[in-house]
Amino acid sequence: MKRLIQIALGLALVAALCAPAMAKKLVVAHDTNFKPFEFKGEDGKYTGFDIELWQAVAKTVGVEYELQPMDFNGIIPGLQTGNIDVGIAGITIKAERQQVIDFSDPYYDSGLMILVREGDTAIKSVEDLKGKIVATKTATSSVDFVKASANAKEVKLFPNNDGMFFELMSGGADAVVFDMPVVKEFAMTAGKGKVKTVGPLYRGQSYGIGFPKGSPLVTKVNEALKKAKADGTYEKLYMKWFGYAPGK
């Protein structure tokens, strides 16, 4: 009997040591202010397209998680060090990022757009940004685009959306160049009557969910994304947060 008890305790110890790796609560990082993808609602809780899409994905995968709001430029380093398990924050899938983290399949197709003050008639395209002061967000694909294509006098970088939009409206910048859905949402809400979008949509880009290199979650999340698109969950969330159907 004593021998059986010892064996049982040994098996219990092995199970206890193995369990945390399988059942730990994931740390899911998201941007603090990237409306309508993620932002703090009136109830003080974070919400948005990314947040609700991840909720659906996590339910399908069967994982528990805690949301970790943070500045965008800290998310990829956090994934590299393993301090973060998942990053969902409108992260553009780029070759240089794929060298240091893994991505899910694309879940949103976007592009870049120019935002100017309402009364501005001089800026109509990226060519008109020559010699101008342009505001955008730190560590995003917008920075690469502006530096390569705008020939701006100065590029001002901000850790969050509020900073770059305020800089434009206060006259500290001549234009903002950033992700189309975020720019359009601001122009239709808080910036209505104060700012406007101009020019075409520049540089098509796709967002992906980020993971540390070699994460076993990638395959499971891709399967969950396919399920969300197949059963209508994805389209329902898309309509809720953008006001039109995917591909429109």
Rank of each mutant, 00 (worst) to 15 (best):
M1F: 11
K2R: 14
L4F: 15
L4G: 15
I5E: 07
I7W: 09
I7E: 15
A8F: 07
A12Q: 12
A12V: 13
L17R: 09
A19W: 02
P20L: 00
T32R: 14
K35E: 12
P36H: 07
F37E: 01
F37M: 05
E38C: 15
D43E: 06
K45V: 10
G48W: 03
I51G: 08
E52F: 00
Q55Y: 09
Q55D: 15
K59P: 07
K59N: 12
T60P: 03
Y65G: 08
Q68R: 15
Q68C: 14
Q68V: 15
P69M: 03
M70A: 13
M70G: 10
D71P: 15
N73E: 15
G78Y: 03
Q80A: 12
I88Y: 00
Q98Y: 02
P106V: 02
Y107R: 01
Y108L: 09
S110P: 01
S110Q: 01
S110T: 08
L112F: 09
I114M: 06
R117H: 00
E118K: 12
D120E: 10
K124F: 06
K130G: 02
K130F: 00
K132E: 07
I133V: 15
A135V: 00
T138G: 10
V143C: 05
V143Q: 07
F145Y: 12
K147T: 14
S149K: 15
S149T: 13
A150P: 00
N151S: 11
A152G: 06
K153S: 12
K153N: 13
K153I: 10
V155S: 08
K156R: 15
L157M: 08
F158T: 05
P159W: 08
N160P: 03
G163Y: 03
F166A: 14
F166S: 13
L168P: 03
M169V: 10
S170P: 05
S170M: 07
G171I: 01
G171L: 02
G171T: 02
A173R: 11
D179P: 01
D179Y: 00
P181C: 02
E185L: 09
M188P: 02
V195H: 00
K196T: 13
K196L: 09
K196I: 10
P200Q: 08
R203F: 11
Y207D: 06
Y207H: 06
P212F: 04
G214E: 03
V218H: 04
V221Y: 04
N222F: 03
N222S: 04
E223Q: 10
A228Q: 13
A230R: 04
D231E: 04
G232E: 04
T233V: 07
Y234D: 06
E235Q: 08
M239F: 12
K240E: 07
F242A: 11
A245C: 03
